Amino acid sequence: MNRILLCSLIIVLFHLVGLYGFLSPALEDLFIKLVPFHLLLMLLLMVLTVNERSADLIKFVIGIYLAGFFIEVIGVNTGRIFGNYTYGSALGVKLWATPLLIGVNWLILVYCTGVFLQQFNLKSRLLFSALGAGILLGIDFLIEPVAIRFDYWSWYGGIIPIQNYLGWYIFSFFLFLFFSGLNFRKENNAAIVLLFAQFGFFLALNMWAL
């Protein structure tokens, strides 16, 4: 069994197990505590399925992680980016009221979405970035109710502001511009599997748990 297939199977398996855990009242608290480890495992699987270590790939990883983390630091401490929200305990250790793993979440989402779109050989970086931001916005629509329900984060007043979705789209657009301007290998079937596994996971939770 090759590495890509093995990692893809692990991705699907862990999302199915996670879905079962989140849908089981007796296991819910345990699986919420396992969220940080799940994110780190998905990151490890992406590392294992990347066949290069180029300077541009390193720039991408560091750039997206730092951009994702610090936009959230600014957002959660000022309310000026996404609106007024606060992080719960599900995403683990925090710095400046922001989980350190939130940058990993942005990194995984941008990488998987970018690799998926790369298949279509879009000539325009602006179109590529607009579509990438649109996909991330769609995923955010699915994530938000789940995040609130399972203590990832919460919104003041219990209402998700339109500002959040505008902020997600605009910020994501610039992240995909950064992605598309770098020259590293952007083919990884395991990343596409992870993108669809995440989509299916959050869609299922929206349908059955909320």
Rank of each mutant, 00 (worst) to 15 (best):
residue 156 Y to L: 14
residue 122 L to G: 06
residue 109 L to I: 07
residue 98 T to R: 01
residue 109 L to K: 04
residue 95 L to M: 08
residue 122 L to K: 05
residue 137 L to V: 04
residue 87 Y to T: 02
residue 149 R to D: 01
residue 168 W to T: 13
residue 147 A to R: 10
residue 158 G to N: 09
residue 167 G to W: 03
residue 151 D to L: 09
residue 104 V to T: 08
residue 162 I to T: 15
residue 111 Y to V: 02
residue 138 G to E: 07
residue 115 V to M: 05
residue 92 G to K: 07
residue 162 I to V: 13
residue 110 V to I: 08
residue 111 Y to P: 00
residue 155 W to H: 06
residue 143 I to T: 03
residue 121 N to Q: 14
residue 105 N to E: 00
residue 119 Q to I: 08
residue 127 L to P: 03
residue 112 C to I: 00
residue 130 A to P: 06
residue 149 R to N: 03
residue 172 S to G: 10
residue 99 P to V: 01
residue 114 G to P: 09
residue 152 Y to L: 11
residue 177 L to Q: 12
residue 98 T to C: 02
residue 154 S to Y: 11
residue 156 Y to G: 15
residue 105 N to R: 01
residue 149 R to K: 07
residue 116 F to L: 09
residue 102 I to Q: 00
residue 93 V to D: 12
residue 85 Y to V: 02
residue 181 G to A: 15
residue 157 G to F: 13
residue 187 E to H: 15
residue 121 N to D: 13
residue 146 V to I: 12
residue 121 N to A: 14
residue 175 L to T: 14
residue 123 K to W: 09
residue 133 A to H: 07
residue 118 Q to G: 13
residue 147 A to P: 06
residue 138 G to R: 06
residue 132 G to N: 01
residue 131 L to F: 06
residue 185 R to G: 12
residue 131 L to D: 02
residue 148 I to Q: 08
residue 144 E to D: 04
residue 155 W to P: 07
residue 144 E to K: 04
residue 144 E to I: 03
residue 135 I to Y: 03
residue 89 S to M: 15
residue 157 G to R: 13
residue 109 L to A: 05
residue 87 Y to G: 06
residue 91 L to E: 07
residue 186 K to R: 15
residue 174 F to Q: 14
